[in-house]
Design a protein around this nucleic acid. Structure first.
Length: 824
RNA sequence: GCCGAAGUGGCGGAAUUGGUAUACGCGUCGGUCUCAAAAACCGAUGUCCUCACGGGCAUGUGGGUUCGAGUCCCACCUUCGGCACCA
């Protein structure tokens, strides 16, 4: 009977019920067993699970189940990243409270996850919107505050008008909001920040230890943190006490600095113009720059607008007085907001200088044009060369000069060596309701006061008016806002912003270690046992955002002595997207395939096999109904063999014939191939194909009536196939294991099959013969045959003779058991 | 511009890391079974020349190393992703 519709549902539901009832996948600390922590990036509960979830979690589940069979003590938890804006949008649109909507979605997600048969320890399930979870967000915030890593400051921030909230730098991509894709604007606001920059160095350096992360993720984080070594150089203002500090990575060009450029926002920009004829024009220019959006100002074809301040600065290396300009291409937020301009050797400065008719001087000689004058140049010379016009450094290569000049400048106190980071502190306050309240209180007398630890959690009130616009909803909840100052007891008011939801997900992997601890954030001993996460799986979209924040939190919690490790995720796998007709599945495109419908016809096991077989886990995956059916057929073939050909038999003890040996070879080869595929980076597609090859051999293998030895050989091969497939098709595997009369409680913990190298050594091998690099023949010869044996056989062959007849044999190369290469 | 990943049949993709390129699956074609169809099973399937035996050409392009290159080296091309007026 084929394994179809109702049958599949019956079997899958049966085993899901058994796993739930017996808590088959409950994990607990066992110091005698080696642990393995498998984690997938937990979902935002927005409704039912989709194919992206299915792929992500199937990958994780197969790894978890494989490791169980390998004897590891596996922790495989699941939870919900439950705070966030969609819940508020749902509240506005449907009139349900964010809480109600979220918990309803969680129920739907959970049902979908259970239907897939994932091996979670459900006792560790958590949702970040539970007060039992977010109180520890507040706890971490206060700890960070205690350690000086939290501050509030007013400055220009990223503001998404459509989401009506601030955004972290990491949440802005190409000037657009990561969530709604609308344009982000700058706004001056006072906001809470976490000093992630305090960890810039270890966050960058420790990337080198993450050898099991995809190199592109490492590269992306490197780019994001963006360290550049350089030199700060002090330019005194002529006729004033002020000093302009410029940052440069090209101190070798200092003698070619013919002017200085300030960002429009630079504090000295306006000041320098005071009392000069430029004063009015400068004020107008600064005003104008302030009103141009950042993305427009930074856009590719920028025009290099600027204006002379009227002031002059002194180049410390040669005492030269150079004009100070304001240029819109200089950014206040990078370096010092001021640069020394070297138009001959920096393309941007070159364009600016040409536009505004500023002086230039060549200080690095282009070997191809040794006597070129600035007037003759059509662009800046940014390559290497020898210094000229640079006094005592003339004749030095610019590579050496970088070091020599910067050290000389530092020694002369004309500047100092410095490091600049691209990474900015993490803006975490959001003007939204559905998030963790920031545990701070404003008191007239005491200022900003942290909520004492024993008053946690600061609970999110149920009844805030949510409109999606017009400031923090919590500000309108009087009972929430009004509070006594924890310090002096006077009337005070609570902070009404909530935390960015990336705060919640920055440490959830630690909470899983003791998910229901209500005394501490987590049990340090449990965390010491389970951490780090051995294998983390999730989408590439978190390459910077979540993965950077989680690393930051882990380092902080390590530094305050709570966790042993200082990197949370040992191995990282970023799964590819699921496409249909070449496009990402999405509601707006109307090309989504509902996992439920697939499960209803073919079962979760088929869906799992399809999604793993169709492409390597990191690659994009194209949805294919035909492929899905092919994978269902494959499961059916195993099912049919167990049902129709597997017969319990007393171990036969006849001599194995050639067929038996062949089957035993295939069985061992399959074990080796599947094991290697799993160990060598979870190449599920080749693992499954190896079992397909084994099943092809099983199908060909004949068992005549009354041949117990042959029956036993077949049984052994079928049992192996079921075990090798067990991580992939957990429901069918359990059922088949039972059908074969095994009485293990669950196939999930039956030991992974092992292979013997002896069985893989056949008596004879097929070898190819090449003549002058081209394959001209094939031979079946005894294993390990050497040249003495091979030479006569090979040379006698007609096909080979045809190509070597009448020619001298120059070389006769034997690659044992593989091929013979003849050169004539 | 800088950094990262990748280019293999009609399609998804294999290739023990320098050793018989195209495993496995999908699709297509042919066959068995059937009144017929579906399902299932069996066989064929890179491409060109040849009735055939055979042979030529094929892993983005062009070179190189080697008895032997999808794999190593050099120079390109294309695609995807990240960063970017970052001084």
């Amino acid at each position: 009977m084929p394994y179809t519709g109702n049958d599949i549902r019956r079997v899958e539901e049966k085993w899901q019920a058994i796993w739930a009832q017996k808590k088959t996948f409950k994990a607990s600390v066992d110091s005698h067993k080696k642990k393995y922590y498998v984690l997938e990036m937990f979902p935002y509960p927005s409704g039912k699970i989709h194919m992206g979830h299915v792929r992500n979690y199937t990958i994780a589940d197969v790894i978890a189940r494989y490791k169980m069979m390998r004897g590891f003590n596996v922790l495989h938890p699941m939870g919900y990243d439950a705070f966030g804006q969609p819940a508020e949008n749902a509240a506005i649109k449907r009139g349900v409270s964010p809480s109600e909507w979220t918990y309803r979605c969680i129920d739907d997600m959970r049902a979908g996850l259970k239907k897939m048969g994932f091996s979670y320890d459900w006792d560790r399930e958590l949702a970040t919107c539970d007060a039992s979870y977010y109180r520890w967000n507040q706890w971490i915030f206060l700890k960070m505050q205690e350690k000086g890593l939290v501050y509030k400051k007013g400055s220009p921030v990223n503001w998404c008008p459509s989401c009506a909230t601030t955004l972290a730098n990491e949440e802005v991509s190409n000037g657009a909001c990561w969530r709604c894709k609308n344009e982000v604007v700058q706004k001056d606001l006072e906001q809470w920040y976490l000093k992630i920059t305090h960890y810039a160095e270890p966050l960058l350096e420790d990337l080198r230890t993450l050898n099991n992360w995809p190199s592109r993720v490492v590269a992306m984080q490197e780019n994001w943190i963006g360290r550049s070594f350089g030199t700060d150089i002090y330019f005194r203002i002529k006729g004033a006490d002020d000093v302009i500090t410029v940052f440069t990575t090209r101190p070798d060009t200092i003698f070619g600095a013919t002017y200085v450029t300030l960002a429009p926002e630079h504090p000295l920009a306006r000041k320098l113009s005071r009392g000069t004829p430029q004063e009015v024009a400068v004020a107008a220019f600064i005003e104008k720059s302030a009103h141009i959006s950042k993305s427009l100002r930074m856009s590719g074809d920028a025009r290099k607008e600027g204006i002379f301040t009227g002031g002059y600065a002194v180049n410390p290396v040669n005492g030269e007085e150079v004009p100070v300009w304001i240029g819109d291409y200089v950014l206040m937020e990078y370096g010092t907001g001021a640069i020394m301009a070297v138009p001959t050797h920096d393309q941007r400065d070159f364009e600016f200088a040409r536009t505004h008719n500023l002086p230039m001087r060549v200080v690095i000689q282009d070997p191809a044009h040794p006597s070129v004058t600035p007037q003759q140049m059509s662009k800046a010379y940014e390559e290497s060369g020898v210094l000229v016009n640079s006094r005592q450094f003339d004749g030095v290569s610019n590579e050496d000069a970088k070091k020599n000049i910067s050290e000389w400048i530092a020694a002369q106190k004309m500047g100092r060596l410095t490091i600049n980071w691209r990474l900015r502190d993490w803006l975490i306050s959001r003007q939204r309701y559905w998030g963790t309240p920031i545990p701070m209180v404003y008191c007239e007398a005491c200022g900003i006061v942290p909520v004492p630890y024993d008053q946690l959690p600061v609970k999110l009130p149920e009844n805030a008016p949510i409109t999606g616009s017009g400031g923090s909803p919590l500000a309108k909840v009087k009972e929430f806002v009004d509070v006594q100052c924890p310090k002096c007891g006077c009337e005070a008011r609570r902070e009404t912003d909530t935390m960015a939801t990336f705060f919640d997900s920055s440490w959830y992997f630690l909470r899983y270690c003791s998910a229901h601890n209500d005394k501490e954030i987590f049990d340090a001993k449990e965390a010491a046992y389970w951490m780090p996460v051995d294998q983390y799986i999730g989408g590439i979209e978190h390459a910077i955002l979540h993965l950077l924040y989680a690393r930051f939190f882990t380092k902080f919690l390590h530094d305050i002595g709570l966790v042993v490790v200082d990197e949370p995720f040992d191995r990282l796998l970023t799964q590819g997207m699921v496409l249909k007709e070449g496009e990402v599945m999405s509601k707006s495109r109307g090309n989504v395939v509902d996992p439920d419908e697939v499960i209803a016809t073919f079962g979760a096991d088929t869906l799992r096999v399809f999604i793993l077989f169709a492409a390597p886990p990191e690659d994009q995956l194209e949805w294919s109904p035909a492929g899905l059916e092919g994978n269902w057929r494959f499961i059916n073939r195993i099912w049919n063999v167990v049902e129709n050909r597997y017969r319990p038999v007393a171990a036969g003890n006849g001599m194995p014939d050639a067929d038996d040996k062949k089957l035993e070879f295939e069985r061992n080869a399959a074990i080796k191939k599947v094991t290697d595929s799993m160990e060598g980076g979870f190449k599920f597609n080749t693992a499954i194909s190896a079992v397909m090859v084994l099943m092809n051999a099983v199908d060909k293998f004949q068992v005549p009536d009354g041949a117990p030895a042959k029956q036993a050989a077949l049984n052994k091969a079928v049992e192996t196939a079921v075990l090798l497939m067990a991580p992939f098709i957990p429901h069918a595997a359990e059922e088949l294991w039972q059908m074969m009369g095994k009485n293990d409680a669950s196939v999930a913990f039956v030991a992974w099959p092992t292979y013997s190298d002896d069985a893989l050594k056949t008596d004879t091998v097929r070898m190819a013969v090449q003549v002058n690099g081209k394959v001209r023949g094939e031979f079946e010869v005894a294993r390990d045959a050497d040249e003495a044996v091979l030479r006569p056989i090979v040379l006698a062959d007609e096909g080979v003779q045809r190509h070597i007849a009448g020619k001298d044999i120059k070389k006769f190369i034997v690659i044992k058991n593989k091929l013979v290469s003849i050169v004539v």
